[in-house]
Design a binder for these strands. Structure first.
Length: 532
RNA sequence: GCCCUUGUAGCUCAGCCGGUAGAGCGCGUCCUUGGUAAGGACGAGGUCGGCGGUUCAAGUCCGCUCGAGGGCUCCA
């Protein structure tokens, strides 16, 4: 059993006290789990009564009672069968399921404070009075075991600190963070606008935001020219067939805007009294065609590559584009600039040979590091996203996947950066290295990314002619140092708290005439600055 | 999409137990002023997110709906 840090113990104990308080108020509450978190704690409960903010006040005062009672936390080892009987009698189905998860050879323990007994591995503070400073913060829905097919439980978030002073400091920090929120600053500084009548998650860039974005684009374009990229432009829509080949349609249909269907086809289907279900089916089967707002740029770049035959002497070929893509994100997930439905990637695709792969990955990662260093973003983590072996959402065979994953790992090891590997974080066509940073309230966001892809070259049957005069399959690297312009600018606003370095600042100079007689002179100076 | 919260002038907000809207900042005009969030006078600006219901009467109560915030799920 691994024990908790003193702070975790306080928070976890606070969670137990909260559960005990809730049981006092609603005795038939069914409990799930209540762990400490990075910023506090939560407890998931199943309760017929829908909790409201007012309930939190009541729960808090009951918690204060329990703390005042200064109950000891007592660890009790218990026989498995005994525990089963107990939780059955208590009508705690979630505890029974959690109990069943505990391996046979492990000791089962209760923790008891006052009348409240919880299945728990510990650890806790000694007495409830040691929880000196806590606050309940919010109520949220949370699916049991994080699976959306399961029942949604009610989760209460709270936080706790060793002292009142530290708690207040944290609460003030939250207030301060709100002031740096890119949605607030973005509005105050006229950086962007989201308009209901245009659509959720669709960004309108104000002139000030456009300056920032353009400066960033110029900056990265210079870097890419140095590295031998060719800039290209491709359209916003493409035929469904293209995305059938890539695998986007119909397999990722739920995260795309629906297809655009030609008017002739709509008329024809209407004449046949065709139902929506039939329409969907005929689209899926490819009996009728249409267009898709592009969810990714890669198929277009692949077609550019494939427009001519290539010799191994031509490789690597590097295409770059500020390509705008559209994705149907769930409405509850949209968030200012950082999670949107239309985003512009500083996208690029490198077509290279297996031998060139290592150097190209390295160079791609270097660009990401240059970007972060230039902007003073030093607090980031590096994540290697691997496929989830249990999931079916990935394309291609595991031999190619293993090859790609090994390649990425090897390069990462030569970079001198700390990285962690996470399963299930890969793209559907290949593994990736992501650069992840936090926003003002501590949420992780992926920015720059470098992805290795053996699968799309196969799906699109790409070839180059090798020195042996035979066709060979190239590898594709997908990479985006900023990730998306929207998200990057959003996090940049928070990173700088709105105080942009001069080269990015929308307003670099302001001329203040001290009286109206100097208006004309001020105008002249202003014109001079603009020319400059 | 689901849970909780929330929606009054450009912004921040007030508006009691239902009786047909208010402040500060901002904006406009004029006056004043050698200045760094200046002062004064006057003024414009709101079908209280939308639709429906209850009521003699709805910003206020109820239902539905749309948007936003915090989570959960998702994020090729």
């Amino acid at each position: 059993m691994k024990s908790m840090t003193p702070l975790e113990e306080i928070r976890h104990s606070a969670a137990h006290i909260m559960a005990a308080a809730i049981k006092r108020i609603w005795p038939d509450t069914k409990l799930d789990i209540g762990p400490p978190t990075f910023n506090g704690f939560y407890y998931d409960i199943d309760l017929d009564h829908n909790l409201t903010a007012d309930d939190l006040i009541n729960i808090e005062s009951e918690m204060k009672m329990i703390i005042k009672e200064n109950q000891p936390f007592v660890r009790i080892e218990v026989d498995r069968q005994e525990a089963v009987t107990f939780f059955k009698k208590q009508n705690q189905p979630y505890k029974l399921e959690r109990l069943a998860d505990i391996p046979e050879n492990e000791v089962i323990t209760y923790y008891k404070n006052g009348e409240f007994i919880d299945l728990c591995a510990g650890t806790h503070v000694k007495y409830t009075k040691q929880v000196k400073a806590f606050k309940l913060l919010s109520i949220a829905g949370a699916y049991y075991r994080g699976n959306e097919n399961n029942k949604q439980l009610q989760r209460i978030y709270g936080t706790a600190y060793p002292t009142k002073q530290e708690l207040n400091q944290y609460l003030e920090l939250l207030e301060e963070a709100k002031k740096r929120d890119h949605r607030k600053l973005g509005k105050d500084m006229n950086i962007f606008h989201i308009d209901d009548s245009v659509g959720q998650g669709l960004i309108l860039w104000q002139p000030n935001g456009s300056i920032i974005r353009k400066e960033l684009q110029n900056f990265i374009s210079e870097e890419l020219t140095k590295q031998g990229y060719h800039e290209v432009f491709t359209p916003h829509i493409g035929k469904l067939g293209l995305y059938r080949t890539s695998g986007h349609f119909p397999y990722y249909q739920e995260s795309q805007y629906p297809p655009i269907i030609e008017d002739d086809v709509i008329q024809m289907m209407a004449a046949e009294n065709c139902s929506c279900a039939q329409l969907a089916n005929r689209l899926k089967e490819g009996e009728i065609d249409g267009y898709l707002l592009k969810p990714m740029n890669c198929p277009m770049h692949i077609k550019l590559f494939d427009a001519q035959p290539h010799s191994y002497r031509d490789l690597p070929i590097r295409f770059a584009e500020f390509g705008t893509v559209y994705r149907w994100e769930q409405s509850g997930e949209l968030n200012g600039l950082v999670r949107v439905r239309g985003l512009t990637q500083d996208d690029g695709h490198i077509f290279c040979t297996d031998n060139q792969l290592g150097n190209e990955i390295k160079a791609s990662i270097e660009v990401v590091k240059v970007v972060l260093r230039t902007l003073g973003i030093l607090d980031y983590r590096v994540r290697i996203g691997l496929r989830d072996p249990d999931s079916t959402k990935y394309t291609g065979d595991s031999v190619l996947w293993n090859k790609a994953e090994n390649n990425l790992r090897q390069v990462a090891q030569t970079l001198g950066v700390d990285f962690e590997e996470e399963q299930g974080e890969a793209a559907f066509y290949g593994p990736k290295i992501d650069f992840v940073i936090k926003d003002v309230i501590g949420r992780d966001w992926q920015l720059g990314t470098v992805q290795v892809d053996y699968n799309l070259p196969k799906r699109f049957n790409l070839n180059y002619i090798g020195s042996d005069n035979k066709p060979h399959r190239p590898v594709i690297i997908h990479r985006a140092p900023f990730g998306s312009m929207e998200r990057f600018v959003g996090l940049l606003i928070e990173h700088f708290g709105g105080n942009f370095p001069t080269w990015l600042a929308p307003e670099q100079v302001r001329i203040l005439p001290i009286n109206d007689n100097l208006q004309c002179y001020a105008n002249n100076i202003s014109t001079l600055f603009k020319k400059w």
